[in-house]
Design a protein around this nucleic acid. Structure first.
Lengths: 128, 128
DNA sequence: CTTGACCTTCCAGCAACTGGAAGCCCTATC
DNA sequence: GATAGGGCTTCCAGTTGCTGGAAGGTCAAG
């Protein structure tokens, strides 16, 4: 099938699919015309990648996950280790964002938001 | 003062400070040697930028905030609007990450993490 | 006078795409 | 058979916010 159909089935934009081929995540066949010809297995891989990306895994993690998926002799420990490390990073990010949110929402609440120049937000940024 | 001192006082790397000059956030003077010569006001601005960046504001938001800070006739409403919009983005990101965390931690918990190939994480990525 | 730390500019690269240009392919319709 | 359109191709550039490194100028100490 053509790239447009593969895109429709996976929810990934054609540009992204081409990019995934460029960096070696997939290797779709080519027809006589030069058009990519996606097999069901290609589409399956793309969907796998889309879901892994949606869970926030990096491209390199996705490459590893795909390798593990295709390796019948993998151990689930390897998968779990990768997922746990990624989970830890997500938790770090959440913590950082929550800290920003706490500070910011205090500042926003303290700001009158009227026509006067006096502003606790700017004061905080200026003074620390 | 030289860039190294400005860096030490603001906690920003020299590279970052040069970058901020390049994109027009600051305009430090230059000595005869060609070295940048940072005034206290420059350092103050850099510290302001550092704190705004630490709260997750984009560079363009920082530019706007700095402009508002230096505009004596600003209205705090403009600052508050910007901060609130940024806060909303942070909350969206937190929600997205929490959703990832929920899915991932379930999967991680369900995975035995031993030497066998059977793995709920990969199964979920493969099947959806 | 040399050494070493500091400073300068410029170029390249990171992640993961996204947009756009120039041009080929395929099908349908007139 | 010509043409119009939509989809496909490649390639290049841009995004965000720096960061690393190379090649070379400057300055203070010994």
């Amino acid at each position: 099938m053509n790239i447009g159909d593969a895109a429709a089935r996976t929810g990934l934009p054609p540009k992204t699919i081409r990019y995934y081929e460029e960096i070696g995540l997939i290797r779709p066949a080519r027809g006589n015309s030069g058009y990519r010809d996606f097999s069901d297995a290609d589409v399956h891989k793309l969907a796998f990648l889309g879901r892994a990306r949606a869970l926030g895994f990096s491209i390199e993690d996705c490459r590893t996950l795909l390798g593990l998926y295709e390796d019948e002799s993998r151990s689930s420990a390897d998968v779990k280790r990768l997922a746990r490390s990624h989970l830890a990073q997500i938790e770090d990010k959440i913590a950082a964002l929550q800290s920003m949110r706490a500070t910011l929402s205090h500042l926003v609440d303290a700001c009158a938001g009227d026509e006067r120049p006096d502003c606790p937000i700017l004061r905080d940024l200026a003074e620390g």
